[in-house]
Design a protein around this nucleic acid. Structure first.
Lengths: 200, 200
DNA sequence: GTCTATATTCCGATAGAC
DNA sequence: GTCTATCGGAATATAGAC
């Protein structure tokens, strides 16, 4: 399955950490999932903290690479924003390990880990969305907050998906990434349909 | 400080659980924070699971009570929606224990706890927001998803606040609940400014 | 590089005195 | 209702054989 034990450990740890949280997962749990002894983990990593950092790095690094290529194709700003929403919704909906570790870090990460998270995951997409928003927000509006809202509404949709089936009127359609994507794109189109600063 | 030890234990537990997560907090930690012995906790609660459930109930119950009164004053649908956004932003920004436990439950809660969370926290506000949205969304749009997006964008804004200072252009202004409230209200106004179904 | 075996600390939980 | 004392087990981590 894996070329080396070290990678297998990291991927097993990432999966368990995303499901249960760091402190709920023991080194024994990770070792059992890989099929090695707990002592083996301490040959590859100094301790649990290092394993957590390596697992985060493995899951977060290069996550935005596919975004770069995607946005070099579409030229129109509207199309780029819609392509971004599609990309983000599907990323969060389909890579649950990434999504859950992301939320855990936003909630629990210390200053150092949050800065690492910002650089490796958020900085590129955020800068991009902010530049797309800045040409379209109305005077007096904050393009920084607009970018946070665009990313935030997708994040919120995915997180609230956990209780959709318990809310009145909720059905499985509301968990479909394509349905969510279309909804968010339509909402943003309304939100940004005023004359852009560029046209003024 | 507290009338009874039981309440003190519950509040100390809620605070620690929200900061560190359930499994990272031991019964000893809670006991030390209260100033009693660990054995005392087992006189008031059957075990850690019961303490977790009681802490959640203490933090989540009656959280939406203030919303009811608030919305009986304002009559206009626009004003009600804006009052809701103001209420939710300030609730999530100012009651960090509530906010963090909420996110933890959305991420980690089992089916039973998620249903409990839905009923005690989300059902009333969600139904309300959905009814406000349903009169204003355009034909073909889903008022359920619109309500999820309205709640979701606020939740996303608050969660992404953890990394705002690490993002290019971020400053403390973007963490101010009043600034976030104004931004979200302005964005929703754009989003919903098309002719309502009512007017058609 | 992986194992067996173990040291040490901490955990949840209980018994019983006061 | 709160305490002291403690049990059995599980946690992180290490030592050393293979």
């Amino acid at each position: 399955m894996h070329h080396d034990t070290r990678t297998a450990i990291i991927e097993a740890a990432a999966s368990l950490f995303s499901d249960l949280g760091y402190s709920a997962v023991s080194m024994r749990d990770v070792a059992n999932k890989v099929g090695v002894t707990p002592a083996n983990l301490y040959h590859h990593f100094k301790g649990k903290d290092e394993l957590i950092r390596e697992a985060l790095a493995h899951v977060f690094t290069h996550k935005t690479a596919s975004l770069e290529a995607l946005l070099n194709v579409n030229q129109d700003a509207d199309e780029k924003l819609e392509a971004f929403v599609h990309w983000l919704v599907h990323l969060l909906a389909e890579d649950k390990i990434f999504c859950r570790l992301l939320v855990r870090e936003l909630t629990d990460g210390d200053a150092g880990r949050l800065e690492y998270l910002s650089k490796t995951v958020f900085e590129r997409p955020f800068t991009l969305v902010r530049s797309l928003a800045s040409t379209r927000v109305r005077d007096g509006e904050d393009d920084f907050l607009a970018a946070v809202s665009i990313i935030g509404v997708v994040l919120g949709q995915v997180q609230l998906g956990a209780i959709v089936r318990h809310l009145p009127g909720g059905c499985s359609d509301h968990l479909d990434p394509d349905v969510i994507t279309r909804h968010v794109i339509a909402a943003l189109r309304e939100c940004f349909k005023t004359t852009s600063i560029k046209d003024a």
